[in-house]
Design a protein around this nucleic acid. Structure first.
Length: 291
DNA sequence: GTGTTTGTTATCAA
DNA sequence: CTTGATAACAAACA
């Protein structure tokens, strides 16, 4: 489940490989390519990749042509980059053994939906078990429209203030959990980091968003920022199948306090972590610590 | 065969 | 117009 820290980790890693031309593109799953596989090929072949940005959980790859390739990993997407050197040495066994714990075998594999070959011999694999993710080619105006209509402020920016959250939550009768999952209100959080942030801020996920006090929102923002920063530092969380651009798992998993810890003891009070369903999502919290 | 996992959008309802 | 609830999407696993 790639959320902001996981997508940011991939973005930073892949940025090291920008500046090269795409010399071949294989699309193995046409439905993963928007608006169509043919359109992507036409617009990507021979194009230089100039930089990679991120907004929320969306990767934005800039092309020399002025167009943009948007990549969303959704739930099970992976972007794995192989250098020419890695293939020459025969696969993915790095000296630190990191490949053994992750995708293991050779690429492409059954989950591979697209393969980019670069001029420098590098190869980028887009894997996606469940095919929710996509590669989407857009022009400048469409990118602008998407960014303006789909994303609220990012964590770790000055735009995310208690005054802002107070204003956009005020009229809302949804739960604070649902509000934090809404990318239009705040960008980048998903199920894992929402549960973690609410635990750290001592706020019950089922509270009505509009009734959370400004003081609590202030604390919540500070916990969101702290956790997101720490998670990026730890290269994200691997819960199901997230791996970074070299196929390695994230290290934040061992720092999770509530997510995936149903019935285990709360690290603060020792009581059992509860698990309920909110907005159709598994929701983990401590009924004693969170008010 | 059933339930569960989740990011995002479409759809419908109030 | 706004807001919210829910299904749908896809594939694997217990």
């Amino acid at each position: 489940m790639p959320e902001l820290p996981e997508v940011e980790t991939v973005r930073r890693d892949l940025s090291a490989f920008t500046g090269h031309k795409i010399v071949a593109l294989k699309i193995l799953s046409p439905k993963s390519a928007l608006p169509s596989a043919a359109f992507l090929k036409k617009n990507l072949l021979g194009q230089k990749l100039t930089k990679i940005d991120r907004r929320g959980k969306l990767l934005i790859l800039s092309l020399a042509s002025g167009k943009f390739l948007l990549i969303h990993l959704k739930m099970t997407g992976q972007l794995i980059y192989e250098t020419k050197q890695m293939r020459v040495v025969g696969g993915h066994s790095l000296s630190d053994g990191s490949w053994e714990k992750s995708v293991g075998g050779k690429l492409p594999n059954r989950q591979t939906r697209a393969i980019f070959d670069f001029e420098n011999g590098g190869r980028l694999f887009f894997n996606d078990l469940r095919k929710f993710g996509y590669l989407k080619l857009v022009d400048g105006p469409e990118l602008k429209r998407i960014l303006e209509t789909s994303y609220g402020p990012e964590p770790l920016t000055k735009e995310l203030t208690p005054e802002y959250l107070e204003r956009v939550f005020k009229s809302r009768r949804i739960t604070i959990k649902a509000a934090l999952l809404n990318q239009k209100l705040i960008a980048g959080l998903g199920n894992i980091y929402v549960d973690e942030a609410l635990f750290a801020a001592n706020i019950r996920p089922q509270r009505v968003a509009g009734k959370v006090s400004k003081k609590e929102l202030t604390g919540l923002i500070s916990e969101i920022n702290r956790i997101i920063k720490l998670a990026i530092k730890n290269r994200g969380t691997t819960f199901s199948n997230y791996v970074d651009s070299r196929g390695r798992r994230g290290n934040f998993s061992r720092l999770l306090k509530v997510y995936g810890r149903s019935k285990e003891p709360c690290f603060v009070c020792g009581r059992e972590i509860s698990k309920i369903k909110l907005s159709g999502r598994g929701t983990h919290y401590c009924a004693h610590c969170q008010k």
